[in-house]
């Protein structure tokens, strides 16, 4: 694991800010440009520290797979935010040419092998990628991201068993935001109902299971980094439970064409009437928290932090503008046979 020097810490902060600002632009698009985003988007606000802390451990050749809640990863990996926004807007220059949309971002050139919109189904795929890494024998690892809810999907169990058995170089990063849409973990998970961390599930696979504060990018970096080091040495997989709070609703409202879409309030409020829970989460927002910490420890001057914020702001302005101006794909492109079959 690499030491986190000041440059690296500032880089991490910058990525967190970029993800946050990007997600806010996505959210605002529903109001500023109604109808531009269709379908279902899922935001990563609140999970920036977890994403960046995890991805900061990646070495060249490492790979990752994720879920429909996927905007944050390619941003931190360096994929052009213009092309990500254009994809979400369904435009021709989008990262996936407008074929995939918000839930299906993929950038293999940067090791981002893709996502599944179906809960849990990316887990075996990431496991397969880790087998590939093992076969290559170059000490590379795969990060497999999924939600807390996905751990009740059979694919989770099958995958972790196999990864442990074959000592595959993978770190399973469970982003536990304590909700599956509007269901709270203790309503659907026997461990949560018992007041236990979900990382205890790892014991069923004789695999280490660790729980980390996903709002603290350094803690995540150290935890995921230790797990990745272990995997690189051929010692097998680890389950990391990264506790985050999603600061937006699960996704935008679900409605048929013609009904304007928007983001409702968080389910803590809309389903459970628990505004205090949500406000407490806002008070612990990882982005300002990390900024304050870096400023306090002298790693980041406040003026520099403001500059970064300004740069990020401009970057996202440009991404939105680019995506709005970008043309839609030709309708006939839908029939591209070379995309149906390679």
């Amino acid at each position: 694991m690499q030491e986190l020097d000041n440059d690296r810490l500032v880089w991490m902060f910058t990525q967190m800010l970029r993800i946050r600002e990007f997600e806010e632009r996505v959210k605002r698009t529903f109001e500023d440009h109604p109808g531009v985003i269709r379908g279902h988007t899922h935001l990563a606000d609140g999970a920036e520290a977890s994403i960046v802390g995890s991805l900061a451990t990646m070495a060249p050749g490492d790979q990752l797979m994720a879920t429909y809640r996927c905007h944050g990863y390619p941003i931190a990996l360096g994929t052009d935010t213009k092309s990500i926004m254009a994809e979400i807007y369904g435009r021709k220059s989008g990262l996936c040419g407008g074929y995939g949309g918000s839930m299906h971002l993929v950038d293999p050139s940067r090791g981002f092998l893709g996502t599944s919109g179906i809960v849990g189904q990316g887990i075996p795929q990431a496991t397969g990628a880790a087998w590939g890494a093992q076969l290559r024998g170059q000490g590379q690892v795969v990060l497999g991201f999924f939600g807390d809810g996905a751990s009740k999907q059979g694919a989770f169990h099958e995958s972790l068993n196999l990864a442990s058995l074959w000592k595959l170089p993978i770190v399973y990063v469970m982003e536990n935001n304590n909700y599956n849409v509007s269901t709270r973990s203790e309503q659907e998970d026997a461990n949560a109902a018992n007041g236990e961390p979900l990382s205890v599930k790892a014991a069923a696979y004789s695999m280490p299971g660790v729980t980390v504060d996903g709002g603290d990018p350094i803690a995540v970096y150290e935890t995921v980094g230790a797990a990745a080091d272990r995997a690189r040495k051929g010692e097998g997989p680890t389950l990391v439970e990264s506790k985050v709070y999603r600061l937006s609703a699960h996704g935008n409202i679900i409605a048929p064409p013609g009904v304007p879409l928007h983001y409702p309030e968080h389910e803590a409020i809309t389903t459970f009437g628990n505004r205090e829970e949500y406000e407490a989460a806002l008070r612990g927002d990882p982005v300002p928290r990390f900024r304050a910490r870096l400023v306090e420890q002298g790693a980041l001057a406040p003026e520099r932090a403001d500059e970064i914020a300004q740069e990020v702001h401009e970057e996202m302005d440009a991404a939105v503008k680019f995506a709005l101006d970008d043309p839609y794909p030709e309708p006939e492109a839908a029939a591209r046979a070379d995309f149906v079959y390679a």
């Binding site: 999907q153 059979g154 169990h157 099958e158 068993n161």
Partner: peptide, 12 residues
């Protein structure tokens, strides 16, 4: 025991 539905069932 290694099949996914085992774990789904155990949890429930």
């Amino acid at each position: 025991v290694q099949a996914g539905h085992f774990n789904e069932s155990i949890n429930l």
